[in-house]
Every structure is written in structure tokens, then in C-alpha cells.
Design a protein around this nucleic acid. Structure first.
Length: 901
RNA sequence: GGGCGCGUAGCUCAGCGGUAGAGCAUCGCCUUGACAUGGCGGGGGUCACAGGUUCAAUCCCUGUCGCGCCCACCA
């Protein structure tokens, strides 16, 4: 126990950095792979290296830290694996913008130089988020920090890519991809988001080649793509167009002849029932084009500008329809300008039938925010459908479980219909694809350049020059390996053996597809076992009105500002308390203030303990407790512990928070300490000695119970008091239930005392008796046991119930009394001077009516033969007892009213 | 179009067959020797609506309405 007294309040701003630094320096977060203690592992969802801590991180990491600290205290060798993600597009974007501000363009300085800039940026600014995680109190094992592009993880990436390629699970293919014209790279389906756009539906008349003067009208939202049309499709059963199938149209502007084909893709209900087919610029059209062997020319370059390279050669002059000279004017024109130009040209040609306003969903790049373009390019794909099978099976069999369980449906739905995963990106920042091409384009996928040359030499029979693939891998490719690459794979390290499969993954639903699914696939494929036993999915953090936080709305809460203002413990407790299953977290300042008050309450309870000489006594044995009050609080602490454990086992962070809050505030502070005060005020009494023993024991339990969620204040108190001699709270053993004798009797006794005091308080408050007025408590009809109890608890009752003495009512009923019924007894407070008898009569009448009404309800229930016959016997018995109690209470209240006169 | 979730006190949410709960807000009283970042007491709810199952429904089932999200479609 420190000599200095506890300050009047907890100075979180000073204490938190001090305590965190000490934990880190002492190695308190470190795991010990060689130790015999059973492992427990959580890998952090690696934040983007460009990131800064937002409230979502704060939630995610608070929950992880609670689990890690709890398990660590339980004696598990806990590893919380830290690290950051290189975040391909995001990081490249940041550095490009910085260079851009200095007038430097990426392509001007070249790949090597650019990457140098990125690494420099990372060295300077990449540590922001990990510093911020420390402010939260996150007990990550920083010695093991990894980065998705550090050497070990890069080796894992190459190993995985090469292995999958050898197994035929990674391959090159030329097909349509989602192309982002801003970043000029392919992106995966998941990186595309639909946005509602108010556009138009243009109806274009295509002249039928074989029948001059006849037209077929197509409707389109993208008129500019007509430059690359290679057909028009109608439904085979569509009477309107049956005779046209097999004929051709002459495309306006380009003058190309393209066939009219019958394909059931065409929906007679939509548009005109005839649809233009542009295989190189639309996913559905691509399929139609394939089925009918249509050409697939492209008309947009990587930046989204019109290019005539693949279409102009076919352009021919057709009077009144097409003119190669006009077509040439579109070369190099941006896609949006081209749309206007094409429409204008169609209008001029009188081939634009009409334009309708049309709202539709348009795919946009989630990073760039611009409409993506389907483009026909050669890319690397992973065979996700094959890799998904074991992952689906693992969740079906329960080897990995989602919490809450309904997310499994989401997982299954996506996995069962999974598309090939485009893993190549036309970026510079990322893992460069380990593929080298020979002069004829033959690809050699190898771990190193030397191996690629060796393979090429074997293939060609001579040494040839190779070109390395310029592309890098999707960022999620390396994150997919995170649970095993961070543990040392492909090396077989002790950490890998001990901590894989990891225990829990804590994350938001938004990356189930991006990340969780892919970790499942890769983990099962390369480790032969699931990457984690449980996936805990939490909600989104919203503002107090339930709005999504966004910069544009200006409702963003900065977790670091909250930590500054309220302290990390209060922020963490709030997040945990609000983290109900399947619910978004609505974060409001009022809530945080409330939990800061809770922290203060704990602090003040500790101050009280200190003032009363309550100090750690490891030798004190709970089994030695003889007083009902100490037995009762020890038993209640056992219950709180059991609730907390059950809640944490079930990932019910909200219940864990609620159970500890209730116990500390409503049980320990409001009742135990108050009831103990009279005895503690006689410090030399044996009662005081025992209560100090119980109090120090329970306070120690409280500090440990709360440590996972409030690590700072609990540690500060733990050390101030000097609990534990061999290290601090972070590694203190998790509490075990204390063996308590006579718990049932103690509970019955304390329940009665609590009810008595509550009755006294309620009566006094309701008849407006000021606390300064004290009275004797007269008791009528009390059983001897009640009188004995009252005598045992006289001091706390006097203090908390504002009574001077307790005695049975003898002789005449005094005038002007307030009364209350407690069990068999009637409590009488003579208050002749102050009482408003009318108010008292009304109060008693209300209580009587309530008891009688309740009794009637129960009576009715018991009168129902079906209820008595079919309900569980204990329920029937309960109701009978309740009826008797209610009737007795009503009668006693009625008698009390009668006595007033 | 398919799927998931949610409608419980003014607000935010627990509860999920057998007597409606918490925090905050609100009202009244109280500066009592841990704590006014506090103490004590009170008011406030036809548990969205309509059917059904059951001795008994806020809780289970069906439907309706309202809100949110995900996926798909995107002529």
C-alpha cells in the first residue's frame, strides 16, 4: 500500500500514458510460445498503414483487448498479434497526392523511384495508427508487429501464389473486369458499389441492312458504347422481331454491319425488346457475344477515353448513316463527352427516336468514386469456387462459428455463388506478381527471378530474356494469409504451431467477404485447418441519432478526442456496454459521461476503503467469514463473477459491462459499504476487522473483474493498494469464486434488511419528511425473528432509515403515523408533527389497491382449472404463495388505514 | 427480385413463454465524514398492428405496416 493517499479524483490524462509505457516496457503484452501455458490468439484486423484511428477501430480493438486481457488473466498464454496492411490503392493514392502537390507525377519518376517515396512515407507516417492504438490501452504484442509487405509476409505471398498457380488454382484469363479509370486498374467485384444515378434512356434507331427504310429501335443508358456494338439481340419468342433474326443492322456513325441474333437474354418487357450488344463493355453482353460468336472490340482506353484502334478499321461510309471522318473526331474524347457527342450525332442523323429520364444503379469504384468500366483485359484469377468449398464445409460443420450465428447465412450465400477472384492490380504499390514472361509470352511463375530463368531455360532449351509481370496483387491477397503469415509461415515456427488456429476473429460485417471469407479459403488450403474458431461480428458505430458517421455530415466522433476528454477506460466501457449482439452501436456523449461517472464511483469507493483501513490481506480466508453482511457480499461477488464469465464466454460484452456495473455500484457501494459503515466506525471491533477482510477481498475481485474493460483505473488502484506482490494486475490471476458458508441464510437476512430500509425511505420520502427529522420505529405484529433481525441491524437501520430506535408497539396507537407493511409486520413511524394525514391515507390506499388488484389477478388465474391442471406445479405453487402474501398485505394495509381513522 | 435485422418508458437499449427492466432524461427531497462526476424517493409502457398456437404470449407461428442493411438487377 502506497503511503500517499489517493487523489480526490483519477487523473486519466497523467495515469494512462504512464501505465501503458510501463506495461510495454515490462513486456506485459508479450506472448511466450515456449511456455507450457495453453495459447490463446487473436490477430488484429490490420488497419491500413495510411489510417488513423476512427471510432470503428476503437470498438473493434476494445472488444479484442477485453478478450485478450481476460484470457491472459485466466492463465492463457495470450497473443494479440499486431500489424498493419499496406493497403495498395489507398497508400498509392496518398503518396501520389503528396507528390502531386510538389508537381511530381508517378509515371514521370518511374516505378522504382516511386516505391522509394512510398517506403519513405511509410517510415515517417506509417506508425500513426499503432501509436493511437496504444492510447486506447490495447495490449498488443508489439514485439511481433508485422506489415503485409515486410520480408516474411512477402515470402508467404510468393509461396502461396506459386503454389496455387502450380495447382491450377491461379490462372490468367482474358475476360471482362471492373476497370477503374481513375486508378487505371482492375478491381474486384467487391470493390464496386452501386449508386443510384439519374440518367436517361436513349432510344436509337438502327437501320436494317437488308430492308432499306426499316429500323429496329434499341434502348440504352450508354449510347456511346454503340461504337463497339457487334450485334442486336431479340428474344427468340418475340413475334415483333422474329423475321429480323439473322438479318443485320448498319450501325450509325461507324457504318459497321452487325447481326441481329435471337437470345433469351433479351427481355421483351424491357425497353423495346431489342437490345444492343457490346461484348467488350458490358458483362451480360459479353456472355451474349460469346454465345453467338460476336466480335469483341473495345472502344475505351485505360483512362476511359474513346479509342478507335479496334473499331475504326471497320468503319465505312454509308450515306446518311455513317461517316468515317465524323467518327474520327471522337478519337481520344473522354467517355462522358463522347456520350454527348454521339447523342448529338444521332440526333443530326435523325436516328434518335426519343429520350426518357431514367434512374438506375451504376457501378462505381468504391475508392475513386467514378463509374467503373467493364474492360476486356488479361488478368490473374484465383479459382475461388474451388477454394470456397472447404471453407463452406468448415462453417457448416461448426469448426468455425459465427457470432451472431445469422451471419453464417450471409457467408454461405456469397460463398456458394462466388465468382473468380481477380487478384491482379495495375498498381505499383503492392506485392509484385511473381510471374516472368518469355519472348513468346509464355509465363513462368516462380518464387524468384533466378528460378524463373532456370524454368525458362528448361522450357526453351536456351537462355532467354524474361520480362517480369508489372502488376501487383490485390491487397486482400496478402491479408488473406494474415492468421498464419504473421506467425511465421511458411517457416514452421513454434508460434505457428501454438497459436494456429487462432481463437477469435473480431470484425465488422462489412469485411466478411473481403477478408473473413478469404482467410478461411487460404487458411484451410495452406494450413489444412480453419484460421479461427470463432468469428465475432459486431455492428457499426453510429452517432447518437443512429446516423452513420461521416465527414460530410460532420458527426464524426474522434476516439482520441474522447479518450482525451473522458479517459480510455470510460470510452472502452461505453463501447463494451453498447456492443449488443447484432446491433449497431449508437455512441453518444451522455453515455460516455455516465460511464466516466462509474469510473469515478469506483475511485471513490476505493478512497472510502483506504480511509477505513481496508487493505489487501492475502491471508484473509473468505471461508472464515461469520457475519451475514460479509457472507452476503462475498456471495454476491461470486454471482457477479459468474455473470461476467458467462457473458464473456458468450461474447456478450454488454452483459459483462452491465453485470460489473450493477455489482460495483448497486450492490457493493449502495448497500454493502453503507451497511458496513456503523461497524467500520468502530475500527477496533472484531466486526470491523472481518468486514475489512471481506471488503478488501471483494475490492480485489472488482479490480480484476473490471480490468479487461477498464485497465487503467483498475491498475492504478491495484498498485496503490498493493494487491498482489508478484507483478501487476495485467497478469494477476482471474478471480475464482470464494467458498462462502451460509450464503442462503445471509441472503435471506440481507434481503429483509434491504427491504426494511427501502420501505422506511419510501414512506418518509412520500410523506415529505425531511431527513433531519428522526423518529422511533414502532413495529406491530412482528414475528420474534423479525424483531431479532431488527435488533441485529439496529445501527445500519438507524443510519440509513433515519430512525432513533426500534421497539414493538405497546399500548395505544399514537396519533399521526406513517405506516408500511413488511411481510407479517407493520412498520409505524410516529410523525405527528410533520405528517400530512390526508397524503398518508391516500398513499396507503394506493398501496392497498395495488395489492388487491394484483391479488385478484392471481386469484383469477388460480380459479382457472386448466391452469392448475396444466401449468408446471412449481408455477402453480408460486402463484398460491403469492396470492396469500398479496391478500395478507392488502389486509394489513387496510388495517393501517383504519388505524389512522 | 432474394436475404438478414429491427420496431419494448421521452431517448438509447436489455429481456424473449408464467409479477415489464437498466442507463440517460424528467420531477421531488437532501451539501449526512467516500463520491453533488453524488445520495434517497417518485412519475412514466394497451412491449408496432392483426390473427393463430398455448392453461398462459412482449416472448413462439403467420400476416400487415414502418425503419435499416446486404446481395442481385441495372435496355
Amino acid at each position: 500500500m502506497s503511503d500517499a493517499k489517493l487523489d480526490k479524483s483519477f487523473n486519466h490524462a497523467a495515469a494512462e500514458p504512464r501505465l501503458y509505457a510501463r506495461w510495454e516496457e515490462a513486456g506485459d503484452f508479450a506472448c511466450h510460445p515456449e511456455s507450457p501455458a495453453p495459447g490463446y490468439c487473436i490477430v488484429i484486423p490490420p488497419p491500413n498503414v495510411t489510417g488513423s484511428l476512427h471510432i470503428g477501430h476503437a470498438l473493434d480493438n476494445t472488444l479484442q483487448d477485453i478478450l485478450i486481457r481476460w484470457r491472459r488473466m485466466q492463465g492463457r498464454d495470450a497473443l494479440w498479434q499486431p500489424g498493419t496492411d499496406h493497403a495498395g490503392i489507398a497508400t498509392q493514392m496518398v503518396v501520389e497526392r503528396l507528390l502531386g502537390a510538389q508537381g511530381v507525377k508517378r509515371r514521370d519518376i518511374g516505378r522504382e523511384k516511386f516505391l522509394e517515396h512510398v517506403w519513405n512515407w511509410k517510415a515517417e507516417s506509417g506508425g500513426t495508427i499503432t501509436r493511437q492504438l496504444r492510447r486506447l490501452g490495447a495490449s498488443l504484442d508489439w514485439q511481433r508487429e508485422r506489415f503485409t509487405m515486410d520480408e516474411g509476409l512477402s515470402e508467404a505471398v510468393r509461396e502461396v501464389f506459386v503454389t496455387l498457380a502450380r495447382q491450377g488454382l491461379i490462372y490468367r484469363d482474358r475476360r471482362l473486369v471492373n476497370w477503374d479509370p481513375v486508378f487505371q486498374t482492375a478491381i474486384s467485384d467487391l470493390e464496386v458499389e452501386s449508386r443510384e444515378v439519374k440518367g436517361s434512356l436513349w432510344y436509337i434507331r438502327y437501320p436494317v441492312a437488308e430492308e432499306p427504310g426499316r429500323f429496329i429501335t434499341v434502348a440504352t443508358t450508354r449510347p456511346e458504347t454503340m461504337l463497339a456494338d457487334t450485334g442486336v439481340a431479340v428474344h427468340p419468342d418475340d413475334e415483333r422481331y422474329r423475321d429480323l433474326v439473322g438479318r443485320h443492322v448498319i450501325l450509325p456513325i461507324t457504318g459497321r454491319r452487325v447481326p441481329i441474333v435471337a437470345d433469351s437474354y433479351s427481355d421483351p418487357e424491357k425497353g423495346t425488346g431489342a437490345v444492343k450488344i457490346t461484348p467488350a463493355h458490358d458483362f451480360n453482353d459479353f456472355e451474349v457475344g460469346r454465345r453467338h460468336g460476336l466480335g469483341m472490340p473495345s472502344m475505351l482506353d485505360p483512362e476511359g477515353r474513346v479509342t478507335l484502334a479496334e473499331i475504326a478499321p471497320e468503319a465505312e461510309l454509308v450515306e446518311g448513316i455513317a461517316d468515317p471522318a465524323r467518327l474520327a473526331e471522337f478519337d481520344g474524347v473522354d467517355r462522358f463527352a463522347a456520350r454527348k457527342g454521339i447523342v448529338a450525332e444521332l440526333e443530326r442523323l435523325e436516328l434518335l427516336e426519343k429520350v426518357e429520364p431514367h434512374t438506375h444503379a451504376v457501378p462505381h469504384g468504391d475508392r475513386s468514386g467514378v463509374p467503373i468500366e467493364p474492360r476486356l483485359t488479361m488478368q490473374w484469377y484465383a479459382d475461388a469456387a474451388t477454394l470456397a468449398q472447404p471453407a463452406i464445409a468448415a462453417v457448416e460443420s461448426g469448426r468455425t462459428q459465427f457470432v451472431p450465428k445469422q451471419w453464417e447465412n450471409t457467408f454461405f450465400a456469397w460463398m456458394r455463388d462466388i465468382q473468380p477472384w481477380c487478384v491482379s492490380r495495375q498498381l505499383w504499390w503492392g506485392h509484385q506478381i511473381p510471374a516472368w514472361y518469355g519472348p513468346d509470352g509464355e509465363a513462368f511463375v516462380e518464387r524468384t527471378e533466378a528460378e524463373a530463368y532456370a524454368a525458362a531455360e528448361a522450357h526453351y532449351g536456351r537462355r532467354v530474356e524474361l520480362q517480369r509481370d508489372e502488376d501487383v496483387l490485390d491487397t486482400w491477397f496478402s491479408s488473406a494469409l494474415w492468421p498464419f503469415s504473421t506467425l511465421g509461415w511458411p517457416a514452421q515456427t513454434p508460434a505457428l504451431a501454438k497459436y494456429y488456429p487462432t481463437d477469435v476473429l473480431v470484425t465488422g460485417f462489412d469485411i466478411i467477404f473481403f477478408w473473413v471469407a478469404r482467410m478461411m479459403m487460404m487458411g484451410l488450403h495452406f494450413m489444412g485447418e480453419v484460421p479461427f474458431r470463432t468469428v465475432y461480428i459486431h455492428g457499426l458505430v453510429r452517432d447518437e441519432k443512429g446516423q452513420k458517421m461521416s465527414k460530410s455530415k460532420g458527426n464524426v466522433m474522434d476516439p482520441l478526442e474522447l479518450v482525451d476528454e473522458y479517459g480510455a477506460d470510460a470510452v472502452r466501457f461505453t463501447l463494451a456496454a453498447l456492443a449488443g449482439p447484432g446491433r449497431d452501436v449508437k455512441m453518444g456523449k451522455a453515455r460516455i459521461e455516465g460511464y466516466r461517472a462509474f469510473r469515478t464511483k469506483l475511485w471513490n469507493a476505493a478512497r472510502f476503503a483506504e480511509m477505513n483501513g481496508i487493505r489487501p490481506d492475502p491471508a484473509w480466508d473468505p471461508a472464515s467469514a461469520t457475519l451475514p453482511l460479509s457472507r452476503w457480499i462475498l456471495d454476491a461477488a461470486n454471482n457477479a463473477l459468474a455473470e461476467a464469465d458467462a457473458a464473456l464466454e458468450a461474447f456478450r460484452f454488454d452483459e459483462y459491462a452491465a453485470a460489473t456495473y450493477r455489482f460495483v455500484w448497486n450492490t457493493f457501494c449502495d448497500w454493502f459499504l453503507e451497511l458496513a459503515k456503523p461497524a467500520l466506525n468502530q475500527p477496533d471491533s472484531p466486526e470491523a476487522a472481518e468486514l475489512r477482510g471481506a471488503a478488501q477481498h471483494v475490492l480485489g475481485t472488482i479490480l480484476r473483474l473490471l480490468h479487461p474493460v477498464m485497465p487503467f483505473v483498475t491498475t492504478e488502484l491495484w498498485e496503490h493498494f498493493g494487491y498482489g506482490s508478484d507483478g501487476d494486475l495485467i497478469r494477476a490471476p482471474w478471480p475464482q469464486p470464494a467458498a462462502v458458508a451460509g450464503a442462503d441464510e445471509a441472503r435471506a437476512e440481507l434481503d429483509w434488511v434491504v427491504r426494511l430500509i427501502a420501505e422506511l425511505r419510501a414512506v418518509r420520502a412520500e410523506v415529505n419528511v425531511p431527513p433531519s427529522v428522526t423518529t422511533p420505529l414502532l413495529v406491530r405484529d412482528a414475528a420474534p425473528e423479525s424483531l431479532a433481525r431488527a435488533a441485529r441491524w439496529i445501527e445500519p437501520i438507524r443510519r440509513m432509515g433515519r430512525v432513533t430506535e426500534i421497539r414493538p408497539l405497546e399500548g395505544e396507537m399514537p396519533k399521526g403515523v406513517a405506516q408500511a407493511v413488511l411481510g407479517e409486520a407493520t412498520l409505524i413511524l410516529p410523525l405527528a408533527e410533520v405528517i400530512d394525514l390526508g397524503a398518508e391515507r391516500a398513499r396507503l390506499a394506493t398501496a392497498r389497491d395495488k395489492a388487491e388488484a394484483e391479488a385478484r389477478k392471481v386469484e383469477q388465474k388460480l380459479a382457472n382449472a386448466d391452469f392448475v391442471a396444466r401449468a408446471k406445479p412449481e408455477v402453480v405453487e408460486e402463484n398460491r404463495e403469492r396470492l396469500a402474501a398479496l391478500r395478507a398485505e392488502g389486509e394489513r394495509l387496510a388495517a393501517a388505514i383504519a388505524r389512522i381513522g
